[in-house]
Design a protein around this nucleic acid. Sequence first.
RNA 1: UGGGAUAUAGCUCAACGGUGAGAGCAGGUGCCUUAUACGCAUCAGGUUACAGGUUCAAGCCCUGUUAUCCCAACCA
Length: 1151
Amino acid sequence: MKKYPEYKHLNLSQISKDVLRFWEENHTFEKSVSTREGQAPWVFYEGPPSANGMPGIHHVMARTIKDIFCRYKTLQGFQVKRKAGWDTHGLPIELSVEKALGITKEDIGKKITVEQYNIECRKDVMKYTDKWSDITKKMGYWVDMENPYITYDNKYIESVWWLLNNLYTKDLLYKGFTIQPYSPAAGTGLSSHELNQPGCYRDVKDRTAVAMFKIADASALLEKGAEAFFMAWTTTPWTLPSNTALAVGKDIEYVAVKTFHPHPVKGKELEPVVVILAKDLLDKYFPSKSAELKFEDYKAGDKAIPFQVIKSYKGSELAGTVYNQLLPFAKPDGDAFRVIVGDFVTTTDGTGIVHIAPSFGADDFRVARQNGIGALTLVDKRGKFLPEVKDGIFLYGEEYVKEAYLSDEEKAHEFQFQKKILEDNGKIKELKAYLSVDERIVLKLQEEGKLFKKEQYVHSYPHCWRTDKPVLYYPLDSWFIRTTALKDRMIELNKTINWKPEATGTGRFGNWLENLNDWNLSRSRFWGIPIPIWTSEDRSEQICIGSVEQLQKEIANALAKGVMAENPLAAYKTGDMSDANYEGFDLHKPYADNIVLEKNGKKLFREPDLIDVWFDSGAMPYAQLHYPFENKDLIDSKKYYPADFIAEGVDQTRGWFFTLHAIAVMNFDSVAYKNVVSNGLVLDKNGNKMSKRLGNAVDPFETIEKYGADATRWYMIANAAPWDNLKFDMEGIAEVQRKLFGTLYNTYGFYALYANVDQFVINPADQVPVAQRQELDRWVLSELHSLIRDVTAHYENFEPHRAARSIETFVDEHLSNWYVRLSRRRFWKGDMNPDKKAAYETLHECLLVVAQLMSPIAPFFGDWLYGNLRAPLGTAENTAMAADSVHLTNFMHANETLIDLKLNERMELAQKISSMVLSIRKKENIKVRQPLQKIQIPVLDKEMQSGIEAVKDLILAEVNVKEIEFVDESNTHIVKNLKLNFKTLGKKCGADMKAVQAYAADHSTNIIHDVERHGKAVVPVNDKEYVLEPEDVEIIPVDIPGWKVANNGPVTVALDVVLSEDLRQEGLAREIVNRIQNIRKDKGLDVTDKISVKIQQNEGLDKAITNNLNYICSETLTGDLQLVQNLSTASANAVEVDDTISTLISIEKLN
RNA sequence: UGGGAUAUAGCUCAACGGUGAGAGCAGGUGCCUUAUACGCAUCAGGUUACAGGUUCAAGCCCUGUUAUCCCAACCA
């Protein structure tokens, strides 16, 4: 006879290990995919992690979410393939290699060849793959790590090139220049990622200036021949020579102010000037008390300067106004020196008029281009002014625009130089320190009467993480993807994506799309996918490569034309998709750069940039399949595209989520994914970000070893919605372990214990029909099937936290603490009979279903539980347990006919009544072991009474009372309360609601009477009459005078606390039973062992024992009970039966 | 600085615009149990971040403020 396995202790960590071995030996994961062959696919894309970092607890979180839905959909019958992937390119890898080798970027090509460097990167990037494999297995994440896609593979790169070429053909790829963070000291552009390294943004003190731009002809704005200035603020005066426009806000109100020049040139101290600035910022420059000053009282040099607002304009009225170039060192290409409208202009600081230097600001560049304004770039790539920025007094040409770029010696040298010039020219009496370009420009403006105000200003400014020097924003050549061309389509298709949470899709992602810029694809690095574009030096000829085959042909041509000597792709066989064929070459630098092509007699060289690694990962739907060279049909006929589901951290919103979307829309006019869950961060228990630096990072290996993967996963899922941040607290895992897994383990243990005693094994083909099972069974099945329905809905909605919480409630409150607790006797009392069998079958079904429902979240424990329940069945062919793993079963459907809401309500009522009776006992200090005679329940409607009747026995047993008596007004006086139903009355009464409420409070007795007798009551209020119908009120019995009463919502219970002699003796008998059971347990007797009992006689006890002898014996499996005169304390246990009675009991096991 | 999210008991989280805002954990007290200090009962703990507004009625809707987090960032 096969048995259900029994265990001594719950050890989740061990269960994980055992189940993991089982999966490996039985290839359960592979089967979960292969057994679904031919079924509808459910497409999942794995976002590639970078294997050169260690896995963290947040990866466990993110992967749990992915795993849950893949497992769930597999249970639903879908085939869910899960190809793992590795992100292998990019800066972090380069940095890691440089650190390991002790080199810097400058050394590449000198101390180490590009070739060697890339070999190192290729090695380095996979250095933690073992750790990743390990955590993947241990956490129970099912993903195919045997055949991952790897972004550095030639096949992967070929697909990426195909996509790029496709964009090139559609004219969505162009080379242009934009304003990018640039480090002159390092001679390289910086990515936003680099700027976001810790410590890059630092507070710096800069010289700021409000410059005055003279309007060329102010007649249109003021009177004819008037002279006026625009005021514009800048924190970077060194950009002023490159100014080509001024921007105003379209709807901002501006004023023209007549005043005196604060820094006039000699001789013009008393000539009034007119300046224009935003009205909102008037106070900042013109204190309102100065408005009362009289112009005629003003003397040169006065601190307080009178002013007068003479006119006002909307920004749009100023647009188009031409002004004189502020610092005319060079002439710009194209149109310039005009007022334009900029959407970014605000009045939070400055003057509401923004100085535009298109070369040195992204906004400036954009708004200038939109308005056809040209640029001036008077700074070179070294960070120095061009030679022409020179006046011989303040500016000397070819000097660093930022003080920080000068070395101490350079600074000292410059200081001596400028000291001489400035002092000789009488500009400064005695120069004490080096003056920065910014400071000297301000001096120059002042000298020329173009300065309104200067001050120091502290703001945060980005620095290059390698050189520690401030960054410049500088126009750089780059390749761009014209994402803006398809912006509307991207927005449109985004609306078809199911975002969890929704706000991320409409908000963070939606806004991002609305403000989309072209995607800068270029990166000046070494380890990445080369841009597959070759251009002639005069840029007249260009070839974009979309496949290795094409490249091979072009090389052949180049060889024929003699521009190349050797064909690195000679061995490549067209059409051969074998790995061997793809391993004979390398598309990375430096090999790609060594290829020179030929077109129309011109040599073509590769564009030197690599592509943004984000394109790598966004290309994975296609590149992981080597599309279109292989698996073309999977994408083209949408068999494996788009994804039904992806999930990553919310930080990927503008990363992977965007690149997937952009590439899909631009290449295939499709979404890349239909459902996306963006999960929140994992913080430490105090809500701080985890970091190695702070030492608060949680080690996932340790955590899983200690608590097991299931408890860890369950905790993370149940504790917060996926998209909320999780405050990770180990104690929370311990709690889950105790509460959910402990309870479930015990519930199973209970089942196994008695099933084995009774030699019961489930027979799915022969079960007691549910209709013939008792109320409690039908109730728990009703709850169970409600649970299936709810959990299914939660999984379908991608709300795993709700699924987990529902399961917790069921296991804990319904199954363990009500069903099993109240059913215990049925399992151990008597021989097998239909009722006992029904109890086993009911409990078995609950455990089986729970095992399956929980298995996506707790895959090990779910499978362990399932395996135990299945253990005595053998192959279990043709049953729901035919598969040898829960993960290979078919998801159970809720049987709606078993869901009986009335029954659920009834049982809730029984629990409520029980709890109320226990509460009265507590108040009256009567133990539950002491039987009581009677409960009274006042009932006002028959339905409630019949509901309680149905669960009466359960209540009585639970609270240890003999009978329930239903009372109404015919046999007792009941105090009743009136409650108004605000929902129905709100509609009826509206604004009179408060008055009705007040009236009802004063006349509750009358209203109750009227409603009960006549079915309605009239409420006269504010000269109106409202008729209260039964649905508008609730009449609740709250008290029976003279009884001990408890009240909860609509239910009231009264308890008879009078103890008769019989009851008292019965209570004592139960105390005795309890003591005997405790001794049994202490002695380690089996639950089936029969015993003989000797109890030392005691006056207060003997009668209670003899009168309840049968009861005591049958409860304790006692074959022989004797009251004896004396027991030796050596062989007997001393027990206190109550405060006054103590005795000795001895127990012998009977054979 | 902008966009997004969050703010409810000491902690973690619930709560269709509807009558005293609920669980669990942690704490006090008492109790039940031949599955289990698992639980049950009970006490304490709340100005639902703050200030306004809409409504007969607001934790929930609207506006603003503050704090924290994420993302994007030299808006001059």
